[in-house]
Design a binder for these strands. Structure first.
Length: 229
DNA sequence: CACCAGGCAAGTA
DNA sequence: TACTTGCATGGT
């Protein structure tokens, strides 16, 4: 994983210390849980505002139907597609979003996913954001976990944690929160991918709407008066 | 029963 | 620009 980095004041930053507190407690999270880049991208759309356990069911059904290929996803009717991904919720919406993605890859990249993913990072982000149904978090997840670029994914848990810990005010734009991480911690996709996964785990089991800080690995890094809000 | 989950786009003022 | 709303299943 991420080996020890050289010492220096730069690495005393709260975000960097938070990473080590989480990693020491829980170790590697092995994200993103997908067998192929296509599966990763499909999962990124299916998990929008949705519990991952439901996405797992949807992915399993796609595999069961042997539909998890660019061609088959694109050829299937929207109602078939929606039926397969039903357990992940918002299935009519997400069927159209998957169609928008596969359509773009066929129209602009000759149906070759590897060509899309070979685009330079800024260009790839721009293209993905141009697809209906792909916003900044989904785009950055794909950049990081499918294309291997060093971007920091910001989700609701990230926002909650940086606000509760007072690392940021909490009203910053997506890009500002992302930049707060990438400007303060070493640029390494493995590192960013692990950190994001650890934040999600902390968000799931501790930094919830009703926080459970008592056993959270970050409890010693909280502000003196406890979590904000 | 209520609440939550690894967002996004479209509408309104 | 800054809210608000629709989208939907499954687990706690």
């Amino acid at each position: 994983m991420v080996k020890a980095l050289k010492k220096g004041t730069r690495f005393e930053h709260p975000l960097y210390r938070a990473y080590h507190a989480l990693y020491d407690a829980w170790g590697a999270q092995h994200w993103w849980p997908a067998d192929t880049p296509l599966e990763m991208m499909v999962g990124a759309i299916l998990t929008q505002n949705t519990a991952w356990t439901n996405v797992e069911k949807a992915i399993a059904r796609l595999k069961e139907a042997d539909a998890l290929s660019l061609e088959r996803l694109h050829r299937a009717s929207l109602s078939r597609l929606a039926g397969w991904i039903r357990p992940s919720g918002y299935f009519n919406l997400k069927a159209r979003r998957l169609r928008a993605l596969t359509g773009m890859i066929f129209e602009r990249y000759d149906g070759r996913l590897e060509r899309l993913l070979a685009e330079p990072p800024d260009r790839l982000r721009e293209v993905l954001l141009g697809v209906w149904g792909i916003g900044p978090e989904t785009a950055d997840s794909i950049l990081l976990y499918a294309a291997g670029h060093a971007v920091f994914v910001v989700d609701t848990y990230t926002r909650r944690i940086v606000r509760r810990h007072g690392w940021l005010r909490g009203d910053e734009s997506y890009d500002d929160v992302s930049a707060a991480f990438t400007s303060q911690i070493p640029s390494d996709p493995g590192f960013y991918g692990e950190f994001h996964a650890l934040i999600v785990r902390a968000g799931k089991y501790h930094c919830r709407p009703r926080p459970d800080c008592a056993s959270c690995p970050l409890r010693f890094l909280l502000p003196p008066n406890g979590p904000r809000d």
